[in-house]
Amino acid sequence: MSRKSWSAVDDYIVGSLFEPDAALDAALAANRREGLPEIDVSAAQGKLLHLLARIGGAKTVLEIGTLGGYSTIWLARAVSAGGKVVTLELEPRHAAVARSNIERAGLGDRVDLRVGPALASLSALQAEGAGPFDFIFIDADKPNNPNYLEWAMKLSRPGTVIVCDNVIRDGAVLHTDGRDANVEGARAAFSFIGKDERLDGTAIQTVGAKGYDGFAIAVVK
């Protein structure tokens, strides 16, 4: 099968299982119009994140990597009454687009969007006494995966679910030559989750509109 076929199946999934969603469609359109990288999660992946957060009854969510806020909207809709999503974005221009998308979706009161280097924002969150978070989604610069996972552990509790995106990378996660920093970041995520006795995790390969990739999913013991 080809990526064209995978995309067609994704379209079938969305057409069969999802209601039309003007806010999410508008967010993707705004991201394209503003020239943001087209690296948002797919609709099916966004709904998976939404359901995982709902299944766990998450009230507090930490998202590392906002981009244009598409996944943020999915997560903000998942938190229970009075819940909050703290989302971290490096690029001010991306954050401005995300803020507009989130406000348009009617979710501004549920989202705390912080702009700047994620590691600095995470340190600030700890200093503020934020957390523990119930659900953490890591989808930022891949070489920092082990640093983000370390911070996730500091800001979590037993039962926290941690999801790390883009860990298969067209199967390149098998490469050990160290030439691709993003692949090394994916391998570092596997190493961290596999070796940390506080975590119980797995990974799922995915195909679809976003190509061949996957998520690592772990729960804090």
Rank of each mutant, 00 (worst) to 15 (best):
V79E: 02
P146A: 01
K84P: 05
A43K: 10
S156T: 06
E63L: 04
P92I: 05
N145R: 01
A188L: 06
G171C: 13
D11Y: 00
R110P: 02
S191I: 09
I204G: 05
N101L: 02
V220M: 11
T87C: 06
G201C: 04
L48F: 14
K142V: 05
H94L: 01
D134S: 02
V220P: 00
T72V: 08
L174H: 11
I204Y: 08
D134P: 09
T176S: 14
L149E: 05
N145S: 07
L62G: 03
A22T: 13
V220Y: 11
L113F: 06
Q126E: 15
G65Q: 00
M1H: 09
A216G: 03
I193Q: 00
G131A: 03
W151Q: 13
G116E: 07
G106M: 05
I64D: 04
S5V: 14
V85M: 05
S7N: 11
I73Q: 01
G208D: 06
A96L: 14
A124T: 13
R3S: 10
M1V: 07
A30F: 10
H50M: 12
V9L: 10
G194S: 13
A58L: 11
L24P: 03
L52H: 02
F137V: 04
H175S: 12
A130S: 14
V219A: 12
L49D: 02
L52K: 13
L107P: 13
K142M: 04
F18C: 02
Y212I: 12
I138G: 01
D109A: 15
A95Y: 09
G69L: 10
A140P: 03
E91I: 15
R110T: 03
G82F: 08
G56D: 04
E63Y: 08
G185I: 01
L28E: 15
R77E: 06
G68N: 08
N182Y: 08
A76R: 00
A26W: 11
L119E: 04
F135G: 02
I39N: 03
F190K: 13
F135E: 00
Q205R: 15
N101C: 08
